[in-house]
């Protein structure tokens, strides 16, 4: 059976299939597709604000809540069960710079690892000063 405008249709099919299978070609043509994020955890850390699973999945919610609390409600300290959390005798502040980055100071080998891997561009650094290690 004859195919009318055969070459145009074949070209269309090739472009269509190439479009939908683009991820496969992109992955196969790059050596980077086997690279996985490597997180460096602080070695001198005692404990985090919450458990690892929660922090892994929900840290952005926590930071967003902190921002709203501090900036909009002027609630500056981490409160749990009605008690202000302390660390080394000091009240724990709801602050990315003063609390999180104290231990997780290596932005490049911590925050950026997953964020770059997943094209997440948090706008933390629009306001916050980046830790010095990351600026080097």
């Amino acid at each position: 059976m004859k195919i009318y405008d055969g070459w145009k249709i074949i070209l269309g099919i090739v472009i269509g299939i190439a479009f939908f299978t683009m991820p496969i070609w992109l992955n196969l043509s790059s050596a980077q597709s086997k690279v996985k994020p490597k997180l460096v955890y602080p070695t001198d850390a005692r404990q985090c604000i919450d458990d690892k699973d929660y922090m892994n999945h929900y840290h952005m919610d926590l930071l967003n809540y902190w921002r709203d609390s501090v900036v909009r409600l002027n609630m500056r300290y981490v409160v749990r069960n009605g008690v202000v959390l302390t660390h080394n005798g000091q009240k724990l502040e709801m602050s990315l710079t003063l609390t999180c980055l104290k231990c997780h100071s290596d932005k490049k080998n911590f925050c950026d690892q997953c964020h770059n891997y997943l094209q997440v561009k948090p706008y933390c650094w629009d306001c916050h000063v980046q830790p010095k290690e990351a600026l080097k």
């Binding site: 683009m22 991820p23 992109l26 992955n27 790059s30 980077q32 597709s33 690279v35 952005m60 919610d61 930071l63 967003n64 891997y117 997943l118 094209q119 561009k121 706008y123």
Partner: peptide, 27 residues
């Protein structure tokens, strides 16, 4: 494509910026 490929193609960041233009909520 941010989940499909590594490295991520250039258009993903562009689309994310436009798509999240209003910066409501987090994510």
């Amino acid at each position: 494509f941010r989940f499909f490929t590594e490295p991520i193609p250039f258009f993903v960041g562009f689309l994310q910026d436009i798509d999240g233009f209003f910066q409501v909520g987090l994510p």
